[in-house]
Every structure is written in structure tokens, then in C-alpha cells.
């Protein structure tokens, strides 16, 4: 078990090197390079740009720049934002709570949908419940998340007026409503629509995996043996089959959880949710490369780390994996 995890961890090191090189080259291959934002500004003189280029070390060979960037990045020194001069790290950190709140709630909602749908559809394979949910799941993975968000805004915010269309709190509520019942309600009302989008789209993908995994498990001899011992259907499914079927699905859930933080780019932008996804679109609009590079590196690293964690989880649920 430990050697398995040690090996998987060591394998991620070259992977992270390749990823960092991809991210670095992408930014530096851009016309105008990282200073593109100043090139288009008529108030910045060419000699200023040249001075800036030297000050930032952009006149050095590419591999030296890459090395010093990587060294600084691993030390936690992510530089300053090009658009407002603040520390990249603090700009990112201040968005983390909103992102975690949105993604965490969405994962819970998605799991609450996935578990019953995936289990029942797998057990009742081919019956009406399975057919309806399977088609719905294909529709769900085909659904453009941003359009789903726009539709919810049209219906629930603009036509019916039941829910706020965007933001995390109502204006004024952030101060006066903090900690009060009204503040909490306001917060939940803002969460409802974006969480519906992310929750439904994720549940569509996950329930397909769980259904397939359930069907595969139910065909195994040990399930037949449980039936033969006279266990009620409920116990066979929930105690024996589910324990076996859930391992691979949980691994996928973990990896997707890391992806969700960046995959929420569309949903956060539609609902003006002040998380990391919105920070990304804002930084992109301003060509704020230091923020973009840090965000891309962080999410990629998170995905790699979550991949290893998912393997670990999978190995705990099913120890054969580690061998």
C-alpha cells in the first residue's frame, strides 16, 4: 500500500514538470509576450517597455526564465498582478472561500442525485426508471452549462422573480445581514441557481458511471452467492454490491472535484459568482498573465494531487488495486 502510493507520488514529479513547461511556453509564445498589455497602451513609451523587459528578466534565455519562475513558484512567490499590482497569492486566496462554497455545495447536491439514481437504474436495468434516467443523463452531459444557467436566470430570476440572478450576496446584505437569519437566507438564495447548474451537470456524468459499475458488480459471483444465502434484495444491493461498485465512482468524483474548481469558469461567469472561475475570466480580459499562470498551475497541480488521492481512496476501498 505505502510503496504503491510512494510510487504514484514519485510519478507525479515529471508530470508536474511537463505541465509547468506547457503553461510557461503558452504564455511566452504569445505575440508581445507577457507584456502584451503594455504594448497596446499608447501612454507607455517603447523605451519604458524595454526597461521593464530588462527589469523583469525577459531578455534572458527562455530556459533561465523558466527555471527562475519555477523556483519562485514552488517557494510560494507567485509575483504581482499585472492589472492592479497586488500580490497574486492574495488575489487568489480571497476568491477561494466563494469557490469552495459553490463547488462543495454542488458536489453534495450532485452526490445526492447520483447515489439513488445510479443504484436504482443499475438494479432495475432496462426498466422504465433506468430508461428515463439514462436518457436524461445523456442529455445532462450534452447540456452547455452556460446556457442552462441563462435559462434558469430567465425563468427564476427575470420571469418569476423568485431568486436573485447573480452575485453572492445582495447589496448591503454583506454588512447588515452578516450572521443573522436574513443573511443566511440571502446567501442560500444566491447559491440555488448556480448550484443547480453544476449539480445537475455533474450528477449526469457520475450517475452513468455508478449505473455501469452497479451492473458490472451485480453480475459477479459473490452477488449471486449473497442471493443464494437468502439475503433480502436490499441487503444484497446496499451491503454487498454497492460497497464494491462505489470504489471506482468515488475515485472519479475526487478527480472531478478538482476539475470542478476550474470547470466552474462558465457557471461563475454567468452568475457573476466571485470565485476563482470569475477571477480567471477577469484576468483573461485584462491579459493579466501572472494571475493566469498561477491559476492554471494551481488547478493542474490540484488535479494531479487529487488523482493520487483518488488512487489512494480506491486502494483503500479495493486493496487489490495496490498490488
Amino acid at each position: 500500500m505505502c510503496t504503491f502510493l510512494g510510487k504514484r507520488t514519485l510519478q507525479t514529479i515529471p508530470l508536474l514538470f511537463v505541465i509547468s513547461a506547457v503553461v510557461f511556453l503558452l504564455i511566452h509564445a504569445a505575440p508581445g509576450g507577457p507584456l502584451a498589455i503594455y504594448l497596446s497602451n499608447p501612454n507607455v513609451r517603447p523605451e519604458d517597455i524595454e526597461r521593464l523587459r530588462r527589469a523583469l528578466g525577459l531578455d534572458r534565455p527562455l530556459w533561465q526564465q523558466y527555471w527562475s519562475w519555477l523556483a519562485a513558484f514552488t517557494r510560494g512567490d507567485w509575483g504581482y498582478s499585472f492589472s492592479d499590482g497586488r500580490l497574486v497569492a492574495s488575489r487568489i486566496l480571497e476568491r477561494v472561500p466563494a469557490s469552495l462554497e459553490l463547488v462543495g455545495t454542488s458536489i453534495l447536491v450532485a452526490l445526492a442525485l447520483t447515489l439513488p439514481v445510479g443504484i436504482v437504474a443499475g438494479v432495475q436495468r432496462g426498466r422504465w426508471f433506468d430508461r428515463i434516467t439514462t436518457s436524461a443523463a445523456v442529455a445532462g452531459i450534452s447540456l452547455p452549462a452556460f446556457w442552462f444557467g441563462l435559462l434558469l436566470q430567465i425563468v427564476f430570476a427575470s420571469a418569476l422573480g423568485w431568486l436573485p440572478s447573480s452575485g453572492r450576496t445582495s447589496p448591503g446584505m454583506a454588512l447588515s445581514g452578516a450572521g443573522t437569519m436574513g443573511g443566511v437566507t440571502d446567501h442560500v438564495r444566491h447559491l440555488l441557481l448556480p448550484v443547480t447548474v453544476l449539480g445537475v451537470v455533474q450528477a449526469a456524468a457520475w450517475s452513468r458511471y455508478l449505473r455501469a459499475s452497479m451492473i458490472e458488480t451485480l453480475a459477479q459471483p459473490f452477488v449471486l452467492a449473497a442471493h443464494a444465502r437468502g439475503l433480502p434484495m436490499r441487503d444484497v444491493v446496499m451491503r454487498h454490491a454497492l460497497r464494491h461498485a462505489i470504489g471506482s465512482v468515488l475515485a472519479i468524483v475526487m478527480v472531478d472535484a478538482a476539475l470542478l474548481v476550474s470547470g466552474a469558469v462558465m457557471t461563475e461567469s454567468v452568475f457573476a459568482w466571485p470565485g476563482l472561475g470569475s477571477l480567471f475570466t477577469e484576468a483573461l480580459a485584462r491579459r493579466d498573465y501572472s494571475v493566469l499562470m498561477a491559476l492554471l498551475m494551481l488547478t493542474s497541480t490540484a488535479i494531479v494531487v487529487f488523482n493520487v488521492a483518488a488512487d489512494a481512496l480506491h486502494a483503500i476501498v479495493d486493496p487489490r488495486i495496490a498490488r
Binding site: L26, I303, V304
Partner: peptide, 16 residues
């Protein structure tokens, strides 16, 4: 390549 989130990567490339 699979670990770099696809949409953000494409958005950066397309905006450049």
C-alpha cells in the same frame, strides 16, 4: 495534457 483544464487552456490560447 489531461491534467491541464481544457477550457481555461483554450480560452488563454484563443485570446492570445
Amino acid at each position: 495534457m489531461l491534467a491541464v483544464p481544457r477550457l481555461p487552456l483554450l480560452m488563454i490560447a484563443a485570446s492570445i
